[in-house]
Nucleic acid binder design. Structure first.
Length: 799
RNA sequence: GCCAUUGUGGCGGAACAGGCAGACGCAAGGGACUUAAAAUCCCUCGAAGGAUAACUUCGUAUCGGUUCAAGUCCGAUCAAUGGCACCA
């Protein structure tokens, strides 16, 4: 009699085989087409993996397994993005060095990944905190520095005056320090930036060449935020000082309607007029208040605008020569445009709100709106009025004309601007890559010689923050004090570390030759594997990580390290797994599902099957214990197919359709409907009560990418010990897909009244005839009109 | 607030490109098997009316529109989720 399905037994057997025999270790093979499938490598947290990780990797796992059977040479690597704040905080809380914590976590993650049976290439595991790895992260930074793309500049950071520590935005929500609850202030600090703005246009243009989901392209392009406009100069006068104030505007057409200027609280002009501004105390007070707020609070449209008039100075509208007042308001940001705007209240919502509040004149320059009620944006057109030389023009023409006019007068020019800011590239933390720069009083910033890389993170006893908001590394004076590589004089090391984004900005290259000592990637390996063919990850990473890594890859292209500008050919996303309560999984909600428990109760195959069956891969889906039970039943029924094999069959089951449906669905991340199709096919076998060996072999191959252990075991059993890995993906004959007879729904006046069975490609006359003869739907009715869509539907309008 | 996405039975979801709404699964109810339970197998299963039938009407967040035909397209509204630059 049949021996029941025992996942424990077969899963450990196959995992041992897969990992001991190294069947998934990718080797360069010039005779095979390559496929490089990438998933976002995890942050190895102390809590271990949760089912969300499993879902994130399961999609590419299915594709990797399928593509191997299709004859591709598949590279499907895994690694760890292990530097970062959570580990550092956790390490401090349990008083253990982050190195030890990290090693422990990585070990645990590796075990968990294997217990799920993922077909990762475990010979290529990388760890961003390994000096052999971050040596190259530092090397890239030095190249950026040498190419003028890394610079130091002042910026504002969240600072807790009590803890004396720089805080991440997440640690300072609602303006309150996470640790002690005191109010967070914005503190000016000298930090490193990378000139990602230099790549803004290329990052935008590059999107046209890659196969990313549309919404990802839109998000990236909005993040880059290209705008076309003009930069023009207003003259600000106070006492006997004049100051040329540059403003950036996307709407030079509305210049005649500019009735005041607004500068950001951080604008340097204020200092210039220090002795002239008559309400300087109030201005200072406002600047201080603005420092308490974060950008998000400052720019919220629905909040009432705050600001004040800067008394004692005025500006001149360069086209009307009218004097206009100058205001300071925190809705203008210093780091976008020029930190100053010309306000056109009639045609800008924020300016309108501000003008209403401070009783400023609103001059309509584009016809069409009702400026008594609200601002009229008129982006898509409108006729200019009250606008001197522009009167009567359409908006588009007015923009062009005004820019030309400004250029002629020498007071302005066309300018493309980007919302994207340069990348703040350092943290005042211990657990990160040391920035390989030496500060010399004589020579300035000098990079650590490349021969001295990696610049190893010193082993600190105490990595808690210092009192003055600098990195814990500054306490390690032995390490900090060094000699200048250029002049040999005494110098100090940069003590800040890199942000976690650094290591993840190039990891896809390191996978190609993880042990290469002479370069970040071996050129021969790169030549073969090249770009990532398909990258899947979370929607939460599509702006920063995905843009940062595209930027680094483009830079590496520019200095000749790689030969493709774009690192990823295709990018898709997966949805989160929510708790069974429909909420995001979190420890505090107590709704976290541990994959280990599911594997213990049902096995890895059930976990893999359910995690893909639970819903659309790209959308969030709630976990359900009962749903997992359904997949357990499914795999049990699959197992029992082995005892239903009979070589004679009573009727044909259309496997061609199943092969097509499952193959296509896998390729488009529709794993849930692929599994539904497998269930339907299984039900058909059960209905017939038999299955042939050939049919079962096809079925097992289709199932193999999802439930790999059971498919491997059954395939081996029914094929005298053959390994499914050595088989090939099933194919089908196109002609087997075409049904000879089609059921056509019959609608009368748009409502379904019946169906007729008709041969393929039947004419309207033929179908209509069948409706008349085989149904009574048209009884007592006169036909007015017939809409017939061949092989789809017939709709008869009748009275 | 801004950008993006989503909203379909008791539940998770399906519906290719405007053409049969609810595939597949879960839960529930009924039945078979069993001393019993579990497991397994079979049947029913959007709502209302009707007789448990035939059939009729309503139904894809809300309101409106386009169309022979709308879950799908258009406009407005509401709600939820992701991102908003030092969490990764």
């Amino acid at each position: 009699m049949n021996k029941g399905y025992n996942p424990k037994e077969i899963e450990s057997k196959w995992q041992k085989y897969w990992y001991d025999s190294k069947v998934f270790s990718a080797q360069v093979d010039q005779n095979k087409k390559k496929f490089y499938g990438l998933i976002e490598f995890p942050y190895p947290s102390g809590a271990g993996m949760h089912v969300g990780h499993i879902r994130a990797y399961s999609g590419m796992e299915v594709l990797a397994r399928k593509k191997r059977l299709e004859g591709y040479n598949v590279l499907f690597p895994i690694g760890y993005d292990a530097f970062g704040l959570p580990t550092e905080n956790y390490a401090m809380s349990i008083k253990t060095h982050p190195r030890i914590v990290t090693d422990r976590n990585i070990k645990r993650f590796n075990e968990q990944l294997r217990s799920v049976g993922f077909s990762f290439d475990f010979d290529r595991v990388i760890d961003t905190t390994d000096p052999d790895y971050y040596r190259w992260t530092q090397w890239i930074f030095i190249q950026l520095f040498k190419n003028g793309l890394a610079y130091k500049s002042k910026t504002l950071v969240n600072f807790c005056p009590d803890c004396k520590v720089v805080l991440a935005n997440e640690e300072s929500q609602d303006g309150v320090c996470d640790r002690c609850g005191s109010a967070v202030v914005q503190k000016e600090k000298d930090v490193w930036f990378l000139r990602i703005r230099n790549y803004a246009e290329r990052l935008l243009q590059g999107l046209e060449k890659v196969d990313f989901l549309d919404r990802i392209k839109i998000e990236q392009s909005n993040w880059i935020g290209r705008s076309e406009g003009a930069e023009l100069t207003f003259t600000v006068t106070g006492g006997d000082i004049t100051y040329p104030l540059n403003v950036y505007t996307t709407r030079p057409d509305t210049l005649y309607g500019a009735t005041f200027l607004v500068i950001s609280p951080e604008h340097p002009m204020v200092k210039r007029f220090e002795d002239i501004i008559t309400n300087y105390d109030k201005v200072r007070e406002y600047q201080k208040q603005a420092l308490m707020k974060k950008e998000l609070e400052r720019t919220q449209l629905n909040k009432e605008k705050t600001g004040l008039k800067v008394e004692g100075i005025f500006a001149t509208n360069p086209i009307t020569n009218e004097p206009i007042p100058v205001f300071m308001a925190d809705y203008v940001m210093m780091d976008y445009g020029t930190g100053a705007i010309m306000a056109v209240p009639a045609h800008d919502t924020r300016d309108y709100q501000f003008a209403k509040k401070y009783n400023l004149p609103i001059v309509e320059v584009i016809k069409g709106g009702d400026i008594e009620k609200e601002a009229y944006i008129a982006k898509d057109g409108g006729t200019m009025i009250n606008s001197g030389i522009l009167n009567g023009m359409e908006v588009e023409e007015a923009i062009v004309t005004m820019i030309k006019h400004l250029e002629k007068l020498g007071i302005g020019k066309a300018k493309v601007d980007y919302k994207m800011k340069d990348w703040a590239f350092n943290r005042q933390r211990y657990w990160g890559e040391p920035i390989p720069i030496i500060n010399c009083a004589k020579c300035g910033q000098v990079p650590v010689p490349e021969s001295e890389l990696p610049l190893v993170l010193p082993d600190l006893e105490d990595f808690s923050p210092t009192d003055d908001a600098s990195s814990p590394l500054s306490k390690c004076t032995d390490w900090v004090n060094t000699t200048c590589p250029k002049c040999g004089g005494s110098a100090t090391r940069e003590t800040d570390t890199m942000p976690q984004w650094a290591g993840s900005s190039w990891y896809f290259l390191r996978y190609l030759s993880p042990k290469c000592q002479t370069a970040l990637v071996d050129p021969d390996d790169y030549k073969y594997w090249g770009q990532v063919d398909w990258y899947n990850g979370g929607m939460e990473h599509v702006t920063r990580h995905l843009i940062y890594s595209r930027f680094w890859n483009m830079f590496l292209y520019d200095i000749g390290v790689v030969t493709y500008q774009e690192p990823y050919l295709k990018r898709t996303t997966q949805g989160l797994i929510l708790g069974s309560d429909g909420e995001k999984m979190s420890k505090s909600r107590g709704n976290v599902v541990n994959p280990d428990d599911v594997i213990r109760d049902y096995g890895a195959d059930v976990l893999r099957t359910f995690i893909l069956f639970m819903g659309d891969f790209e959308k969030p889906a709630p976990w359900s214990e009962d749903g997992a039970k359904g997949c357990w039943r499914f795999l049990n029924r699959v197992w029992n197919l082995m005892y239903m094999i009979k070589e004679t069959k009573t009727d044909d089951i259309n496997l061609a359709f199943a092969i097509k449906k499952v193959s296509d669905d896998y390729e488009s991340n529709k794993f849930n409907t692929a599994i539904a199709q497998l269930m339907s096919t299984l039900n058909q076998f059960y209905q017939r009560t038999t299955v042939t060996k050939d049919e079962l072999n096809v079925f097992l191959k289709l199932l193999y990418p999802v439930a790999s252990h059971i498919a491997s075991e059954m395939y081996e059993k029914i094929n005298n010990g053959a390994k499914i890995e050595k088989s090939t993906w099933p194919t089908y004959d196109e002609k087997d897909l075409i049904a000879q007879e089609i059921e056509i729904p019959v609608q009368i006046n748009g409502k379904l009244k019946g169906k007729v069975l008709v041969e393929k490609d039947a004419t309207q006359e033929r179908v209509l005839e069948l409706v008349k003869t085989t149904t009574n739907a048209l009884e007592d009715k006169t036909i007015i009109k017939v809409i017939y869509v061949k092989d789809r539907i017939i709709n008869i309008i009748a009275k």
